[in-house]
Write a protein that binds this DNA or RNA. Structure first.
Lengths: 254, 254
DNA sequence: TCAATCCGTATGTCCGGACAATCGAACTAC
DNA sequence: GTAGTTCGATTGTCCGGACATACGGATTGA
């Protein structure tokens, strides 16, 4: 009795366009990712060896390897020496990104709304100054926003930004998210340090979020840096835990 | 008046050992990382161009690029075409890892202690079965642990594992963390899906954690997968938010 | 029957070179 | 003086090849 092919090697219809300005390895990576997403490449299936794949596409092996490596870094593929490259079994959708609440809600199909309650310039407190890396009492922007989904308050967002970085228009802040505004202004976000905790609501917080005093709240503090290392934003957010939780996927770095 | 050198190009004493089994690019990456950590490479300083660096080390450019790229992926370096590679200004320590509470506490200098309260085999509930990808009522391991730091309860950890994966010895569970046990058993952790939220403590939870009933708790649910895509662990944890919060650093993937 | 060994296969590492794209500064023209 | 242009420097992409290393199955031996 022949052994069943549990992990068949899949042959795909792959093509690259050499006249395109898009790098070849990137074109290949996109097609492979699409094939995985689409289901043409099923979990566990082998990808065929790199040499033959390169020959079939008319590419060199380093180029093919670069494409595969980018998907390995994303957690979609697993390489095994002497075995081959196969699609990861688990349902890895997307690794953790530096996400904004606005984008999260929008992609979840909720229509987020924002009320800008404060949009002003204040002298930096000690905590804000330390987070942003400026001197105490330096003037910084302060915005406070109430984020709603389906008309219900979901989070209260307090943010501080160095002045001069961005002109914060209240109308724009109500129409989109802060991160999107920063990116539009040409700021390249690079990394962020964040802390997630919980505590009971103060009277003022309870009022704003329509919760009883002392109700459990989910809290998040985040300092975001651009690629030059400047702190570009310090946020202090509180969330209603019945309406929101942090969900994300992690990859293990070997 | 001459313009001050704000971003000097640094020349380091780098060497590679070709007789070592450690890959050359990895040796170089380690030395560069050590130089950054140690302060020899200060934030903002340029790394010198790749060609010349390769020549100085007697390596090829692809090898040097591979070393640099690994540090770029870690968020320690930034490359700019036409400019060079420079050390990131901000204090990027380490990106987010799939960390275990035990390791976190240990590296923070706290001496964690664990009381194993339950270590048994039970039929899987609907929730556990869905998370682990097994049929309902399948036998699974269930462990409940109270984690203490400095003698104070810090978290209550409930975990379920597929049976047959690991023999869970209570003594070992009290001496080290679950992830370390799994790694020792040859399981390669690959990814995890987790959800962080908050809620009030039930009477039983409050008792276990020495908190008043209804006190805010930080909650985390996590399903961990190995590199074959199997779910290897499902955890449901509650933390005392006055004692613990999740702190981590994110990188933006462009 | 079972264990140790061999071997094919696939990825891992490394080389040296070539050209393209982009950034920043120096230079030129108005 | 200012704006546009040129040009050097540096990384980005891609090639073709070579050898090392590890995994898994087949073969061989006890």
């Amino acid at each position: 009795m022949p052994k069943p092919d549990v992990d068949p090697t899949v042959t795909l219809d792959l093509r690259v366009d050499r006249s395109s300005p898009v790098p070849l390895y990137f074109q290949l990576a996109q097609q492979l990712e699409a094939a995985i997403e689409h289901g043409s490449l099923t979990p566990g299936s082998l990808l065929g060896n790199e040499i033959e794949l390169a020959a079939r596409l008319g590419l060199s092996r380093p180029t093919v390897r670069q494409a595969i490596q980018s998907l390995v870094d994303k957690g979609l593929l697993v390489r095994r020496r002497g075995v081959g490259t196969q699609v990861v079994h688990s349902q890895v959708k997307r690794p953790l990104e530096l996400s904004s609440l606005y984008d999260d809600l929008e992609s979840a199909g909720q229509r987020p709304a924002t009320n800008v309650l404060v949009n002003t310039v204040v002298p930096a407190s000690a905590e804000v100054a330390a987070a942003l890396g400026v001197a105490e009492e330096t003037e910084v922007h302060r915005i406070e926003r109430l984020r709603l989904a389906h008309g219900e308050p979901m989070a209260y967002l307090t943010n501080h930004l160095p002045s001069g970085l961005l002109d914060l228009d209240t109308a724009q802040l109500e129409a989109t998210g802060l991160y999107r505004l920063m990116r539009t202004a040409g700021i390249t976000l690079h990394s962020a340090r964040q802390s997630i905790g919980a505590r009971g609501a103060t009277a003022a917080e309870a009022e704003r979020l329509d919760e009883p005093e002392g109700a459990p709240l989910l809290t998040m503090q985040r300092t975001t840096y651009d690629d030059t290392g400047r702190a570009v934003e310090f946020g202090d957010h509180i969330y209603r835990p019945t309406r929101y939780s942090f969900e994300f996927q992690l990859l293990v770095r070997p």
